[in-house]
Amino acid sequence: MANLFEHIGMEKERLQFSWISSAEAGKFTNVATEVANTIEALGPIDKFVKKTD
């Protein structure tokens, strides 16, 4: 899916996967921060956005 994302010109990093157990609070916060940071760095998406006007 991420590969097809990239293929049509969207940033692959917008789609991230992780496997976290309910006991891994530390990992959860780390992954969440990392996801938030990557997305923030990419900025708002300008493709594949439905404009209703």
Binding site: E6, H7, I8, G9, M10, E11, K47
Partner: peptide, 14 residues
């Protein structure tokens, strides 16, 4: 050939 394009070129292609 599509993979080699940059992301904006890919998007405009599709």
């Amino acid at each position: 050939a599509v993979e080699a394009m940059d992301k904006d070129a890919k998007w405009s292609y599709f």
